[in-house]
Structures are given as structure tokens and as C-alpha cells.
């Protein structure tokens, strides 16, 4: 009996009150394992420093001291791989009815994956819509997080856990940016 029950739990999406606290535990786990502060966007800087430093002072540091961060993000990639292979949810992704209705208006009807196949795929990459969503969007994620000095993990979770007010300002700005884009600009892009 226990086996199938366990597997069903692993396959279903997990509720926020289980996942959230477990994500929060990453903060003490990394501190206790080796004085590492939780932060993911720094990995992008270490990749630049290790592969394309181009004599830019911002990338001239000993990135090997920060190699743990690259192991960490490689682990996140593996975690995604393992979950997709072993605990795939056979049911379509459930979303708020109001969102599903809005997205249907843009022809987004595929709920098989957490990444919507209808707009984020190799073919759409060469359309204006896909260019905005993936290339421009990705660029803003990399540029914005470095400019802000952190992302959701470094500021919103690690920074707020340590009661840092600059992290609160950053987090509020993340949300303002997201609200503006999702509600005012994204409809124009999805209509392309």
C-alpha cells in the first residue's frame, strides 16, 4: 500500500506549505555546510568569469573559490532531470481559470508542461514573440539580477531572511516590474 501512495504524492504537485518551508531550509543548510549564502544569479557571473572574462574588471576574480555555486546550479539542473524522469505528473498543469481563459485568447492551450510548449519552443524562437519571451526576457533576467546584486534567492529569500532592507527594496522592485510587464506589456507581446 505504502509504495503507490508515496509515488502518487511524489507525482502530484506539492502544496506551498510543504515546498516553501523546505526551500527556506536551503538557507541554513548552505550556511552550515560551508558558510555559503544562498544565491543563484551569481552563478551567471561565475560562468562569465570562467569562460568570457574579456579583461573586464567585474569578471577578474578567482571564480574557482566560488565553484560551489556552479555545482549547486548543476545540481538544480539534475534535480529537474530526475523529477521529469521519475515523478512526472500525468495530469495537465492546473492553472487559475481566469488565466486559462486569457491565455486561450492567445492560442495557449497546451498544459502538458510547466513550460508552455505553445510559445516557448524552437520554432517560435525565430518569431518576434519568441524573441521577446526568450531572448529579451533572458537578457533582462541576467542584466537585471546582476545590476540589482541578486535575484529571488539572493535578495527575496536570503536577504530578507537576514532582515536586509536593501533586499526588501529589490524584492518590491522585482514585483513592480513583474506586475507592469505581465499586465500591461505581455498582452501586446502575446498578440504578436
Amino acid at each position: 500500500m505504502e509504495g503507490p501512495v508515496m509515488l502518487t504524492f511524489l507525482q502530484q504537485p506539492w502544496p506551498w506549505y510543504i515546498a516553501g518551508p523546505l526551500i527556506g531550509l536551503t538557507v541554513p543548510a548552505l550556511l552550515i555546510l560551508g558558510n555559503k549564502t544562498f544565491g543563484i544569479s551569481s552563478s551567471l557571473r561565475h560562468i562569465c568569469a570562467s569562460c568570457i572574462p574579456a579583461n573586464i574588471s567585474y569578471f577578474k576574480y578567482d571564480w574557482k573559490n566560488e565553484a560551489w555555486n556552479l555545482f549547486f546550479v548543476f545540481g538544480i539542473f539534475l534535480g529537474g532531470l530526475i523529477t521529469a524522469q521519475l515523478f512526472t505528473d500525468p495530469n495537465p498543469v492546473e492553472v487559475a481559470p481566469a488565466l486559462a481563459e486569457e491565455l486561450a485568447g492567445y492560442g495557449i492551450v497546451d498544459y502538458d508542461n510547466l513550460v508552455p510548449e505553445d510559445i516557448l519552443n524552437w520554432q517560435s524562437l525565430f518569431t518576434l514573440k519568441g524573441f521577446f519571451l526568450m531572448v529579451v526576457g533572458g537578457f533582462l533576467v541576467g542584466f537585471g539580477t546582476r545590476y540589482a546584486g541578486g535575484c529571488t534567492s539572493g535578495h527575496a529569500i536570503m536577504g530578507l531572511s537576514n532582515l536586509q532592507w536593501p533586499s526588501l527594496i529589490a524584492t518590491v522592485c522585482f514585483m513592480i516590474g513583474g506586475f507592469i510587464l505581465a499586465n500591461l506589456i505581455l498582452p501586446l507581446i502575446l498578440s504578436l
Binding site: S41, L140, V141, G144, A148, A170, I180
Partner: peptide, 22 residues
């Protein structure tokens, strides 16, 4: 000030890609 300007820009990227770096 980067936390404001960069924060807003990352917010735009977050809503477009539906993903933060992790």
C-alpha cells in the same frame, strides 16, 4: 540604486520568461 533599476528590469524578465535564474 541598482537594486531599484536592476530590480525593475529583472521583474520584466521574470514575467517574460516565467523564470528566475534558478
Amino acid at each position: 540604486k541598482g537594486q531599484i533599476y536592476g530590480g525593475l528590469l529583472f521583474g520584466f524578465g521574470w514575467a517574460l520568461t516565467g523564470a528566475c535564474p534558478g
